[in-house]
């Protein structure tokens, strides 16, 4: 009986060891999903993020040249509805809205709208707008030449301002897409406002971005 018990407790220990490793592995897997999610979304453009704008590596000159080429051949056979949305992060006490709800244009045509933001607080705030687009696969067909999201925006206490946005929709946009929704979320960067005139040529949200 006792030898049998020893043998079985060794069996138990081995199996417990293996199962404990599985448990630890799956706990780690839960955390592995975090970078995996970012990578998959960026590679396949699933969640409509403008990765280079978020990362501060958006090449405005190249996009302007691209837009200039695209505007050469406007596709008048199609119309695209571009809807504009605005939301504020809960920590930002701003009024923030597009001055126009939507724009119907041909691919290749230059579009221009303005967003309006007003600082409702009693102090200066440095804010950053982060864009996202639905459907996410349309991101690479959407060239922005001017956007308030390229830089951080400093709004003085009580200041309101109109912020322009210029873009071109690439005529190569897949045929099944007829409506594009462009959303901006405005965040408080937490940074101190610099004296008037100084700008920050860093396009990224507060904190770390991946």
């Amino acid at each position: 009986m006792s030898t049998e018990t020893n043998k079985s407790s060794a069996d138990h220990r081995r199996l417990i060891g293996v199962l404990s490793l599985v448990v630890l592995g799956m706990f780690g897997f839960g955390f592995l999903l975090v970078p995996l999610y970012s990578v998959i979304c960026d590679v396949f453009g699933l969640n409509g993020r403008f990765v280079d704008i978020d990362a501060g590596t958006y090449d405005i000159t190249a996009q302007s040249e691209r837009a200039a080429t695209l505007t050469q051949n406007v596709d008048t056979t199609r119309e695209i509805t571009v809807q504009f949305l605005a939301s504020r992060n809960q920590n930002l006490n701003f009024e923030f809205r597009p001055m126009q709800k939507k724009l119907v244009l041909h691919p290749g045509e230059m579009g221009m709208v303005k967003y309006y933001a007003k600082n409702l607080t009693g102090k200066d705030v440095v804010a950053q707008a982060v864009p996202s687009l639905v459907p996410g696969t349309a991101v690479k067909y959407f060239a922005k030449t001017e956007c308030f999201c390229f830089t951080q925006q400093t709004l003085r206490a009580g200041e309101g301002k109109e912020m322009p946005l210029r873009f071109v929709v690439d005529p190569a946009l897949p045929k099944n897409v007829s409506t594009i929704s462009l959303a901006y979320t405005f965040f408080d960067t937490g940074a101190q406002a610099k004296p008037a005139g100084a700008t920050f040529n860093v396009a990224r949200a507060a904190g770390t971005s991946n």
């Binding site: 839960g30 975090v34 979304c41 949200a205 904190g207």
Partner: peptide, 16 residues
């Protein structure tokens, strides 16, 4: 989201 995260990620991890 303010720190670069994504609330939708939670839904994926939770439902996994």
């Amino acid at each position: 989201a303010a720190g670069g995260g994504d609330p939708v990620l939670y839904q994926h991890v939770f439902w996994f």
